[in-house]
């Protein structure tokens, strides 16, 4: 971490995003609070339905929030008027999971990259070509392929173009929504390195969302673990992977298949049951039906997210210290 790591870039308080699907309420994001510091990579990990993608979209105001607040550099993006919202859009951006579906198939790369500049009327149109070329070069695409269509590139190259687009407006903060998950491993490694290089060079801040614990662990300074719309544990990476406290985090780490033959066979010790639906989450702690250490209290009351040591927060009745007596 670098010196400005203590500046809070984004402050999220009790953020809720609910959807209505076929008349039923889906609590995709149900009361999430955390801070994002300038210059850090904050990892968000969890299984499908945990709300990690909704989190990324909501803090960029790409979904309507149901409750709670987001403050980006002290301002709430949801209450910004036209010009301020435009400036928020310029400072933030996003990279998506599937590079094939996140690039408009009817537009040439040049048009895709020119659009942000045009929408924001950034600089002189005469300079746009140079800017497009230089960012393509920075992301590892030869500028002479500018006039190709997305389908004429391989998956890894398409993702490089997606990254290039996210950089066009020179943002400060990028949400990486499963940005490497759809790629073959050898390509994934290239893109991860690229993202890390860009982060250092441009002094970016990432919210790095992924279901792949190995990837999140490698890139992140801190990690949020989510389960059914809520944060169950938050800690600096070393602490989270070295001393996981929430039973779900422990299970997740254990289930993750590593290539370390010393752990052979251990990652297949199963956690019982399916992930419940966010439409009817279990009462009490959402993890209680699957939790190996479940207590009576867990089925009745949702545990608060509590700091058990500096920067390490857990939502679990096992760690409620004084209050549990």
């Amino acid at each position: 971490m670098n010196d400005n790591s203590n500046h809070v870039l984004m402050e999220v308080q009790d953020l809720k995003t609910w959807f209505t699907v076929n008349g039923e309420k889906v609590l995709a994001l149900d009361g999430v609070s955390f801070q994002l510091r300038e210059g850090e990579i904050l990892g968000v990990v969890g299984e499908s339905g945990c709300g990690k993608s909704t989190l990324g979209r909501t803090i960029l105001r790409l979904e309507q929030k149901t409750g709670g607040s987001v403050l980006y550099r002290g301002k709430d993006p949801f209450s910004l008027a036209k010009d301020d919202l435009k400036s928020f859009r310029r400072q933030t951006s996003m990279v998506f999971q599937d590079p094939s579906s996140s690039l408009n198939p009817r537009k040439r790369v040049d048009q895709i990259l020119r659009q942000p500049l045009r929408v924001h009327s950034l600089g002189e149109p005469a300079e746009w070509n140079d800017r497009i070329n230089s960012i393509l070069q920075e992301t590892g695409i030869a500028p002479q392929y500018r006039n190709r269509y997305p389908h004429q590139f391989s998956g890894g190259q398409k993702q490089r173009i997606g990254v290039a687009r996210s950089l066009m407006l020179d943002p400060d903060f990028i949400v990486m929504d499963e940005a490497v998950s759809a790629l073959d491993v050898s390509i994934q490694a290239q893109i991860l390195n690229l993202l890390l290089d860009l982060k250092d060079k441009r002094n970016l801040t990432y919210l790095f969302i992924s279901h792949d614990l190995g990837v999140v662990e490698f890139v992140s300074d801190r990690i949020l673990v989510m389960y059914l719309g809520r944060i169950v544990e938050e800690a600096p990476t070393v602490i989270l992977t070295g001393k996981p406290s929430h039973p779900y985090t422990q299970a997740l780490l254990k289930a993750f298949p590593t290539t370390d033959l010393a752990t052979r066979g251990s990652s297949i010790s199963p956690l019982e049951g399916d992930v419940p639906s966010p439409i009817h989450p279990p009462s009490g702690c959402h993890f209680s039906p699957r939790c190996p250490q479940v207590m009576d209290r867990c089925r009745e009351e949702y545990p608060p997210l509590r700091e058990i040591e500096n920067g390490h927060r857990v939502a679990c009745w096992l760690y409620q210290g004084k209050t549990s007596h």
Partner: peptide, 10 residues
């Protein structure tokens, strides 16, 4: 998901 993957492999 990984926890389900672990179950199936098991």
């Amino acid at each position: 998901d990984v926890t389900i993957q672990a179950q199936i492999l098991h």
